[in-house]
Amino acid sequence: MNKIILTLLMMLSAFTSYSQEQKDRILYIVDNIPVVDTPKEDEQPVENDIDKLEIVTDFEKIKSLGYEGKIDKIIIITTKAYSARPDDVKGIPSSKMMTKTNGLCYYKNAAQPYSGKFIDYFFNGKVQGDGVLKNGKIEGIRTVYYPNGNKRYFYTYSDGIENGQSEEYFINGKLKQKGSFVNKKEEGLWQVFYSTGKLKRESNFIANKQILSKDEKKFYELFSKGASFMKEGDYFSAIKKFDDALKINMSYADVYFYRGTSKLNTFDFDQSIADFDQAIILEPLYMEAISNRAFARLRKYEFKDAKTLSKSREITIMAAKDVVPIPKEDLDKICADLKLGYELGDRKPMVIDAMKRYCK
């Protein structure tokens, strides 16, 4: 049953799904909520999450549910978490069942904007977020959670606008960032942390202006210029700017990540790995650095003895080999990084493809 549920949900690409192998128009309803977006893998219900599964093909029942002429089949999933909720909690609507018109939320096309509490859920029945709407706008604290149940962030709102304290968290529950807004603008002290608990940076905002020291201004100017060069594909110029930035601040993980990525694009794989190592030492949950480190190790073997197709001052094009033999020690490191990157949320096709090819 586990595989059946996952297959059914993964088929979905929109509110209605058309299969290439069949003409049925299928609608999925999970805990009374029509599914609009394809759920991520860690949000999908598995066998232990499911209380009931009903497949509706009867025309009259489809008509009674309000989908006459639109749907050929409805798959209704009820999670155990939903079944266990008290009736008063079940009665609290989800924002996913609301429409937004002129910036205001309406529940089931009601004449007046919605006022009251709302709770959103993942497709496995776990709480995704909650808050309060007043006359169709967010009011008070809006909280969002990770699939593992840990708090992801909360923001404080007034009349739908960020006003007050906010905090963001890493997936392990550690504080990531905190600060306050006044009319959607940062105000006062803002602090950003690594998942280790170490302070990454802090800034003061006064009258919508960020107050920085001379060294801080120079650091961020160099970092920004390096990022611009990198975006333009001028990786050697980018590396020089990142080198200069690190002379000012050697404890900023993002600089190592960006420089490592630039070196990866210049085929300097060993130095690229060294930069990703440093970024991950500073931030152990740095998803992008973890994934890129895997590819730096992987490309080191895929491009070993590779043929150069063309070369200029700005760019070198080489022909990579397909699946290549990799020593077990490095292959274990590659697969460990790919797996961790995936678990942290990196679901890019290249990550999934590499896992399939090398990490069976």
Score class of each variant (00 low, 15 high):
193 F>H: 08
203 S>R: 15
256 Y>K: 07
208 N>A: 12
231 K>Q: 12
192 V>I: 13
187 E>H: 10
214 K>Y: 05
189 L>M: 14
212 L>A: 07
211 I>W: 03
256 Y>W: 11
214 K>N: 06
210 Q>S: 04
216 E>F: 05
267 F>Y: 14
207 A>E: 13
268 D>V: 03
247 K>F: 02
217 K>C: 03
271 Q>G: 10
191 Q>E: 14
220 Y>P: 00
242 F>T: 02
264 L>Q: 08
201 R>F: 07
204 N>V: 13
220 Y>F: 15
269 F>M: 10
250 M>T: 12
207 A>I: 05
212 L>Q: 14
212 L>F: 07
204 N>Q: 14
214 K>I: 12
230 M>P: 00
263 K>V: 03
219 F>S: 03
242 F>K: 02
202 E>H: 11
226 G>L: 07
263 K>S: 01
242 F>M: 08
200 K>V: 01
244 D>C: 02
237 S>L: 11
270 D>R: 13
196 T>I: 07
214 K>D: 03
212 L>M: 15
227 A>P: 00
181 F>V: 07
210 Q>V: 12
250 M>F: 12
248 I>K: 04
222 L>D: 01
185 K>Y: 10
184 K>L: 09
241 K>F: 05
210 Q>I: 13
217 K>Q: 14
257 F>G: 01
187 E>K: 12
202 E>D: 10
232 E>R: 15
219 F>Y: 13
220 Y>L: 11
198 K>W: 01
259 R>C: 00
268 D>C: 04
217 K>D: 03
262 S>D: 04
261 T>R: 14
216 E>N: 07
271 Q>M: 11
223 F>A: 11
238 A>R: 06
226 G>S: 08
209 K>Y: 00
221 E>I: 03
180 S>F: 04
237 S>N: 12
251 S>I: 10
220 Y>W: 15
244 D>S: 13
204 N>L: 14
208 N>D: 14
265 N>C: 06
202 E>S: 11
224 S>D: 08
192 V>H: 09
193 F>A: 08
223 F>Q: 10
227 A>F: 07
245 A>K: 02
249 N>P: 00
209 K>S: 01
256 Y>S: 05
266 T>I: 14
213 S>I: 08
241 K>A: 07
188 G>Q: 13
260 G>F: 02
233 G>C: 04
269 F>D: 03
180 S>M: 11
240 K>T: 10
239 I>E: 05
211 I>D: 05
244 D>A: 14
243 D>H: 06
232 E>H: 10
245 A>L: 07
190 W>A: 03
269 F>W: 15
259 R>I: 03
222 L>C: 05
192 V>G: 00
209 K>Q: 11
243 D>G: 02
201 R>E: 13
232 E>F: 08
203 S>N: 09
235 Y>A: 05
271 Q>C: 04
197 G>Y: 05
195 S>W: 04
215 D>W: 02
235 Y>W: 13
257 F>C: 04
206 I>R: 11
211 I>F: 02
225 K>A: 08
194 Y>F: 11
228 S>A: 14
184 K>T: 09
189 L>N: 10
213 S>Y: 07
242 F>E: 02
239 I>Y: 02
221 E>L: 12
191 Q>D: 02
